[in-house]
């Protein structure tokens, strides 16, 4: 079109172009302005930072205790959160335990998001027979109660962190698959996807440019709420001995080993549970906040 090149000079320089605030910027702004979500984000950031920087925050070794100072109460000098049944510093155990617990809670969700998300997007976008095959396979897994399935898989594979991760990932794939599939199916039906097809774009390009960005919202909300479930399930597996093994510090496992001391040191005993609760609740509330923050235009 020669006409275009002739008139191009008339077009204003790009420096003056007005750029509106993008969708994710708006969501982030809304999220920060939501007091509950903001508190949750701060709590989570503190707990994650504590776990990551554990060696800098404490001088004790999480695995080494002292027989003379067993089950000290909260507030003991030198052991601000007390000590456990083997005389190990609780604060240290909680910080190091966070590393394992958070890892076991978040990694399966991320893996399931990648695997289930890809399969769900493919199933939703292409539809037809491919969709039927993928979704019916997911239904088979979905038919079992998730906690039971996780225990069964972890039990069959044997105790250990790695196996627990595999079990949790398998359990989390079907729900994420369903959510991404329905999101992709919805976006797939919109005119702009058809318009993109009509301009000759290939499926991969359309998925990348038009589909993923528009299904990310609901998937992100759902994944965040799954994090809160996964944290509890991971701790649960360790609690019944199918996850982390002693002497590793892990919140679920700590709950198990401390449970004999529930009458002598109740406060110390519930500390790991409190952390599990805090993280799980924060993810849950954050998910709600995210949902309302995304409710724009």
């Amino acid at each position: 079109m020669t006409m275009i090149s002739e008139t191009q000079n008339k077009v204003q320089p790009e420096a003056q172009v007005h750029v509106s605030r993008g969708y994710w910027q708006t969501v982030w702004r809304n999220l920060r302005r939501d007091p509950v979500a903001a508190v949750c984000m701060i709590v989570l950031a503190l707990i994650f930072a504590g776990a990551i920087f554990a060696p800098l925050l404490t001088r004790y070794d999480p695995a080494v205790g002292s027989i003379v100072s067993r089950l000290k109460p909260v507030g003991t000098e030198g052991h601000i959160l007390g000590t456990d049944e083997q005389g190990r510093d609780m604060l240290t155990r909680l910080l190091y335990g966070g590393r394992m617990s958070l890892l076991m809670g978040t990694v399966p969700v991320l893996l399931a998001l990648v695997i289930g998300g890809s399969l769900g997007t493919i199933a939703g976008y292409f539809g037809g027979r491919l969709n039927t095959v993928i979704m019916r396979a997911a239904d088979v897994l979905f038919a079992f109660p998730s906690v039971l399935l996780a225990v069964a898989i972890a039990g069959a594979l044997g105790a250990g962190v790695g196996n627990a991760l595999v079990a949790l990932t398998i359990v989390l794939i079907p729900p994420l698959l369903r959510v991404t599939e329905s999101a992709a199916t919805q976006v797939r039906a919109l005119d702009y996807v058809e318009a993109a097809q009509a301009s000759g774009a290939g499926s991969l390009t359309i998925i990348r440019v038009h589909v993923l960005g528009n299904m990310l919202g609901p998937v992100l909300v759902y994944s965040t709420s799954l994090l809160s479930v996964a944290i509890i399930m991971a701790a649960g597996l360790s609690f019944i001995g199918l996850g982390a093994k002693p002497p590793t510090a892990e919140w679920g496992l700590m709950l198990n080993t401390l449970r004999t001391a529930i009458y002598s040191q109740p406060l110390v005993t519930i500390l790991p549970g409190l952390f599990i609760f805090l993280v799980s609740l924060s993810f849950n509330l954050l998910s709600d906040g995210l949902r309302s923050a995304m409710d724009v235009s």
């Binding site: 919109l190 702009y192 009509a198």
Partner: peptide
Amino acid sequence: KFRRDVQMVFQDSSASLNPRLT
């Protein structure tokens, strides 16, 4: 090539634009 030569404008002006793109 045909899809470059022939284009389409839909009824629903809002559904036919990707909301995440400028």
